[in-house]
Amino acid sequence: MLSHRRENDVLVLTVHEDPGIGGRAALATAIEDFVRAFQPSPVLIVIDDAAATPATASAVLRARRRCGDLDVLFSASTHNASIRRLLEDNADSLGPGPVVHPRIDVAGDAAYGAAA
Rank of each mutant, 00 (worst) to 15 (best):
D9G: 15
D9S: 14
V10A: 06
V10I: 13
L11T: 05
V12Q: 06
V12G: 04
V12E: 10
V12F: 05
V12Y: 04
V12D: 05
T14R: 15
T14S: 13
T14H: 08
V15I: 15
V15K: 04
V15L: 10
V15S: 05
H16M: 02
H16A: 11
H16R: 09
E17Y: 14
E17L: 10
D18H: 02
P19S: 05
G20T: 04
G20A: 03
I21A: 12
G22Q: 13
G22W: 08
G23V: 03
G23H: 00
G23S: 00
R24N: 03
R24P: 06
R24A: 07
A26L: 14
A26N: 14
L27V: 03
L27K: 11
A28T: 07
A28V: 03
T29K: 12
T29E: 14
T29R: 13
A30H: 03
I31R: 03
E32F: 03
E32G: 01
D33L: 10
D33Y: 02
D33K: 15
F34C: 15
F34L: 13
V35W: 08
V35Q: 05
R36V: 15
R36E: 14
F38S: 10
F38L: 06
Q39E: 13
Q39V: 08
P40W: 03
S41N: 12
S41W: 11
P42L: 09
P42R: 11
P42T: 06
P42E: 01
P42K: 13
P42M: 04
V43F: 07
V43I: 08
V43A: 07
V43Q: 00
V43D: 06
L44T: 06
L44P: 06
I45M: 12
V46R: 14
V46G: 01
V46P: 01
I47D: 09
I47A: 05
D49N: 11
D49Y: 00
A50Y: 05
A50N: 13
A50H: 07
A50G: 05
A51Y: 10
A51K: 09
A52I: 01
T53A: 12
P54Y: 10
A55E: 13
A55V: 02
A55L: 04
T56A: 07
S58A: 15
A59Q: 09
V60T: 11
V60K: 01
L61G: 12
L61I: 12
L61N: 11
L61D: 07
R62V: 10
R64E: 08
R64Y: 08
R65V: 00
R66G: 09
R66M: 09
C67Y: 09
C67T: 14
C67G: 05
D69I: 10
D69P: 05
D69W: 11
L70H: 07
D71Y: 11
V72F: 08
V72I: 08
V72E: 00
L73A: 13
L73H: 14
F74N: 04
F74I: 01
F74P: 12
S75N: 11
S75E: 14
S75T: 15
S75A: 14
A76V: 04
A76D: 02
A76T: 06
S77H: 04
T78R: 07
H79A: 15
H79R: 15
H79M: 08
H79N: 13
H79I: 13
N80T: 12
A81I: 04
S82H: 07
S82E: 11
S82P: 00
S82N: 05
S82T: 08
I83Q: 04
I83E: 00
I83A: 01
R84I: 01
R84N: 01
R84P: 04
R84Q: 09
R84C: 02
R84W: 02
